[in-house]
Design a protein around this nucleic acid. Structure first.
Lengths: 165, 165
DNA sequence: CAAAATTACTTTAAGCATAAAATAATTGGA
DNA sequence: TCCAATTATTTTATGCTTAAAGTAATTTTG
């Protein structure tokens, strides 16, 4: 019977999900390690937090500015969160915020000149840190990991969307 | 000269780190997606947060209990964080906390009987959710991803340790 | 043995994050 | 036109997270 069951893979899914669980934990560990390292280096080197760095990275790609909603979607975080984050970046002089002329509900934010200069410095080092952390992986590994994570992303989205929409 | 430069790979590292950066962003996206999905399902189905679930998962593996420091190390979060998390789980009746008889600095925590029963239910569903999210990946993909992430983990640790210890 | 160092935990202050409710501006019909 | 629905953002309440400082118990050491 045991043999028979283990052969009955035709039924789409096996009931042993241990491998996927271990994969998820390993994925999480990698992300947590890298993120923690980036956070502490950003803090040490530039006295900046990761959320602020991420927000500035979005703005750096949008010379004409972005609305808070745009930022919120791109960063995959809540609206209310962005409000506070932007407020702190305005205080520190990295970001400029103004109300849109055409739609007074909308806030358009941009990097200030000095904010942009500072960000570029951070980004340059950041890129080196990341490369260093992945340096034991060969070109082929990087390509293959990229491919498998792309596949994972699609799979997760499918499972997530299937539940709501 | 351009050709010459691009051939000068003998100098260990190239200066283009774009691939690694893209890889990191994709890794982060995958983790964020999965984590977000798990968070919202835990909340909907069991009215529990991910940190509480994670803490209970640690305790489930330690029938004789753990000290707060143990938990802190295992979960890779700060001590102060654990204090608050445990306090809330004690309030909700999932966790039992007592001062060690042999060392009165030490707090030993365990799942309560009902906490364990509840956690096992959550864990069973959680495992299915994860398997579902990875379901587009074949066995070979899972194995390969596992291998590459293992390599990544080592690489990151090396880069991180190299900086401090 | 007593002072100093270490260990375990808690508290504090600040920031990040969310969901849900509130506010304010704009748009789309009837 | 006007008012209902929608959209953009802010506010509120709650919880997670950290680093740093504080407290208390134990261990080390002179």
């Amino acid at each position: 019977m045991t043999i028979l069951d283990s052969e009955t893979k035709a039924t789409e899914h096996s009931d042993d999900h241990g491998d996927e669980l271990r994969l998820w934990l390993r994925l999480l560990t990698c992300t947590t390690l890298i993120e923690g390292e980036v956070r502490s280096r950003l803090r040490e080197r530039f006295d900046v937090t990761l959320p602020r760095f991420d927000l500035m990275a979005q703005l750096d790609k949008a010379p004409d500015g972005m609305t808070l909603s745009d930022v919120s979607k791109r960063m995959m975080v809540s609206n209310g969160n962005i409000t506070g984050l932007v407020e702190r970046l305005v205080q520190s002089g990295h970001v400029d915020r103004r109300t849109s002329e055409v739609d007074r509900r909308v806030q358009v934010i941009r990097l200030t000149k000095s904010g942009r200069v500072e960000f570029r410095k951070m980004a340059a080092e950041h890129e080196i840190w990341i490369a260093e952390m992945f340096s034991d992986l060969g070109e082929k590994d990087v390509r293959e990991l990229m491919r498998l994570l792309g596949k994972t992303k699609l799979s997760v989205r499918k499972a997530a969307d299937g539940r709501v929409g």
